[in-house]
Design a protein around this nucleic acid. Sequence first.
DNA 1: AGAATTTCTTGACTTTAGTCAACGTTTTAA
DNA 2: TTAAAACGTTGACTAAAGTCAAGAAATTCT
Lengths: 202, 202
Amino acid sequence: MATPKNIQDFDPTLFLEEIKKRVDVSREQLDAFIKLWEFKKFKKNEFILRAGEVPKFSIFVLKGCLRQYIVSESGEESIVYFAEERHFIGDLAAMRTNTVSNYHFQAIEECELLTISAENWAKAFAEFPWWTDAHLTGYQKWALLLQQQMAERHTLTGEERYLNLLKAKPKLFQRVPQHYIASYLGISPETLSRIRKKIFNT
Amino acid sequence: MATPKNIQDFDPTLFLEEIKKRVDVSREQLDAFIKLWEFKKFKKNEFILRAGEVPKFSIFVLKGCLRQYIVSESGEESIVYFAEERHFIGDLAAMRTNTVSNYHFQAIEECELLTISAENWAKAFAEFPWWTDAHLTGYQKWALLLQQQMAERHTLTGEERYLNLLKAKPKLFQRVPQHYIASYLGISPETLSRIRKKIFNT
DNA sequence: AGAATTTCTTGACTTTAGTCAACGTTTTAA
DNA sequence: TTAAAACGTTGACTAAAGTCAAGAAATTCT
């Protein structure tokens, strides 16, 4: 279970750093802003949000790692995103429109998260233009990146995509099971095993 | 060549309809808003924006159809998006940060577009909160959709993806060359030809 | 520590899709 | 209106990746 509410004794440094990376904003603004977030802990393998439910909050990862995945009609799981420390994750569109999400969000390790409710998200949006701005910029970049990844899914082999990911997120490979990486890359665990064998035995 | 500037005799109906679909906003607001956009025509196959250049504007399609594609290191083209009538398209992230885009935007047919410059985009963003809101919502949904498409790229066969697209955008198949569809689906033109043969000859 | 579970590896075989080349058809442009 | 270019189809072959099954290795739980 998630720890109850308002355990406010978390260290906000990481969070503030990430905000400041994106926008230039005063300490007072940040203090007011951070009050809209709530600290929550989750155990390994615990579900943070589930497909078929209306998301109650959106997430910033202080510690740990979680996966976002979708289950196809045929029952196959497909991981679409890993959120490590310093990453935002969630289904804002579903949360804001009060509709069910298609995605599961699960802790891969014990996690410490900051969460923001739909109400507080709306407040932040109304009161802090710099936040809206940073958000929009983030999404604009992210959408382009996703398109690029799709193109790479089309033009590169599994091996090439594996090497790219290894270069881009080396730490990820130390902390998540290999078959999760396979799911994210869109290849079978067996194929990933063979790719690794080929790469490292030559 | 694109026609010069400020040919303002376009019919804004389509554009206004799309805005109203997203937000509830007064006629006065819309009138002021639409002044920030410029009408442009492009001939078939003409490049609207090119990879390696800083995008000068972002786009709404009044008439025609265009493709957004990326060229891989190995020189392979990969179409990531088709924009038909009523669609927004562009590389806002690159435009706003004054950096070069990785994407080409090319007219597939003769096109009539509304374009907005970086300056006017910033104005719209500052002056029309409803626009920012609609924009953000749009991106939030779009990012989720792209993730879903990536998952489908992983779990479905080429044939299944073809049938899905045929159902989702039937008109697209009447107007764009088949090998563009293949590029978008991430399969070779030959494979698409065989998929079609199999589907329609049984 | 030891049993149970999960994860990873390997082999044999199948499926899906890509490549190359040839040729017919359609579209475009001089 | 005809030549050229672009597009689509087909065949033969190849490559990439999936599936199924068995077993080894690692991790988790009690």
